[in-house]
């Protein structure tokens, strides 16, 4: 029996004249991998920030297990930001130690080091890590306190195919642990592989919502990218990304 862990009702967020999120409604089940898809500027990151409790909505609401976000919400969620700098000159070991100390009952560092395969670069300046190593470290930092909900904002953007696949394995493991995962991506293949439920966003509004399989079958297309192309006339993956 699944339970709704987060629910969004009439969610809206605007910055001066710019409306970033425009009336979203959806629910996220506990233990699910929930994907927010859309091209750059669709409102994915803003929606994620509202779900994380990092931003307050202009109107509408985000509820946690049927109520307002609790005071200790930050203890229950782990966040991997799209672009996060860490302190200069600190190693992955220093960072794990620092972030562990923020929580009362953190996961053991040895377990995180093993789970995210940080050992080979544990004492290297974090600024000198490769993209994939850095993402693994950021994910470990997001999970240091064993949160029940994990937010991943475009975790594979800028990674080479090998690192991207590595990260998919990590996310699959997290899903197997029973955590609720909420991720944004503009890679359709990634969404198809990882997500149980999807919301496709465009200009801050919901274009489509459902399981990847149902969305593809209902539209009679071969994949999500084709579906998105048929809906909006634009591809989710930019020409530059295809070249990369």
């Amino acid at each position: 029996m699944t339970e709704t862990i987060l629910a969004v009702r009439g969610l809206r967020k605007s910055y001066d004249d710019v409306v970033a999120v425009d009336g979203l409604d959806f629910e996220i089940e506990s233990g699910q991998c929930f994907g927010l898809l859309g091209p750059n500027g669709a409102g994915k990151s803003t929606t994620l920030a509202l779900l994380e409790g990092m931003e307050l909505p202009t109107s509408g609401s985000v509820t946690y297990r049927g109520g307002a976000l609790p005071a200790d919400y930050q203890d229950r969620v782990g966040i991997q930001f799209q672009a996060t700098a860490l302190q200069d000159y600190l190693t992955p070991f220093d960072n794990l130690k620092l972030f562990s100390s923020f929580y009362d009952d953190p996961i053991s560092m040895d377990r995180l080091i093993e789970q995210f395969r940080l050992g080979e670069f544990l004492h290297r300046d974090a600024r000198r890590l490769s993209g994939g190593q850095r993402q693994r470290l950021l994910l470990a930092l997001a999970l240091v306190h064993n949160p029940e909900i994990v937010f991943l904002d475009e975790p594979t953007t800028g990674l080479d195919p090998r690192s991207r696949r590595d990260l998919w394995d990590v996310v699959t493991d997290l899903k197997a642990d029973g955590r609720t995962l909420i991720l944004t991506t503009h890679y359709m293949e990634e969404a198809e592989v990882l997500c149980d439920q999807l919301v496709i966003l465009s200009h801050g509004q919901t274009l489509l919502q459902g399981t990847p399989k149902a969305l593809i079958e209902d539209a009679g297309v071969v994949d999500l990218d084709t579906l998105f192309l048929s809906l909006t006339g634009e591809s989710l993956v930019t020409t530059q990304e295809v070249i990369e």
Binding site: E52, M54, D72, Q74, D75, V77, I79, F81, A83, T84, A85, L86, Q87, F99, F102, Y103
Partner: peptide, 16 residues
């Protein structure tokens, strides 16, 4: 510098 690089935002997501 911490703010501009997003590090403060990362810390905001902790109980600090």
């Amino acid at each position: 510098r911490y703010r501009q690089s997003g590090y403060l935002r990362r810390l905001k997501a902790t109980p600090l």
